[in-house]
Amino acid sequence: MVRMTAIVVCAALAGCQAVPGEGPLASAINKDAGRSSADIGRLNAAVFEIVDVDNRSAHLVSDYVSSALKRRFGIGNAGVGRAVIGVGDQLKVTVFEAGSDGLFSTSESKQTSIDIVVQPDGTAAIPYVGTVRFAGRTLEEARKAILAALVSKAVEPDVIIATGDTPSRSVTVSGAVGKSSQVSLNLSGEQITDVIAKAGGATAQPYEAYVTIVRGKRTGTALLKSIIENPSENIYVQPGDQVFVTRDPRTFTLLGAVKGNARVEFGANDLNLLEAVALGGGGNDYTVDTKGYFLFRYEEPEVITGLVGQGRFNELLRKGMKPNRDGRYPIVYRFDMTHPDSLVVGQTFPIKSRDVIYAARHKSVDFSKFLSIIGAPLGIAAQGAGTVSVVGSVGN
Rank of each mutant, 00 (worst) to 15 (best):
E302K: 00
R318F: 03
V277P: 01
R318Y: 12
G256K: 01
Q242W: 07
N284P: 06
L307D: 00
K319G: 12
S232C: 05
R328V: 10
V243P: 01
D241W: 03
A209H: 15
F335D: 09
V332Q: 10
M321G: 09
F335G: 02
G311P: 00
S232G: 11
P249Q: 09
E302D: 13
D285A: 04
D336K: 02
T338V: 05
V245C: 04
N284Y: 09
P323C: 00
V214N: 14
R325D: 15
N234T: 07
P301V: 14
Q310P: 09
N284S: 07
N269W: 07
G281R: 12
N261G: 06
D336V: 11
V243Q: 02
L295Q: 05
N269R: 03
G220W: 14
S342Y: 09
K225A: 08
G311W: 01
R318M: 14
V277N: 01
D270W: 08
R218T: 15
G240F: 07
G309L: 14
K319Q: 12
L316N: 01
D248H: 09
N284R: 08
F266P: 04
T338R: 07
L316I: 11
P340T: 04
V245H: 05
Y236A: 08
A257P: 13
E275L: 00
V211N: 08
G327I: 14
G267W: 03
Y293W: 09
K259R: 11
G283E: 08
T246C: 01
T287H: 00
K322C: 05
I227A: 02
E275D: 11
R263T: 14
L255H: 01
A257Q: 07
A276G: 00
E300A: 07
S232P: 07
V258M: 02
G306C: 08
Y286I: 00
G292K: 05
E302V: 05
V214D: 12
G292Y: 09
L317D: 04
F296E: 10
T212C: 06
Q242H: 03
F252K: 02
P249R: 13
S226P: 03
R250Q: 15
Y210N: 06
L223F: 06
F294K: 00
N230S: 08
F294M: 07
I331L: 06
R247S: 14
R334Y: 04
S342N: 02
T246S: 12
S226Y: 11
L224S: 10
T287F: 10
V288P: 05
P323D: 14
F294I: 04
P323Q: 09
D270Y: 13
E233Q: 11
R218C: 12
Q310E: 13
K322T: 13
N272S: 09
R215S: 14
K217Q: 12
N234G: 10
R263L: 11
N324V: 15
F252E: 06
V264K: 00
K322R: 15
Q238Y: 13
I228Y: 12
I331F: 02
R218Y: 12
V345G: 01
P340K: 05
A222W: 12
G282T: 03
F296T: 08
V345T: 08
G260K: 12
V258G: 03
F244S: 13
E275I: 01
I304D: 02
N314P: 02
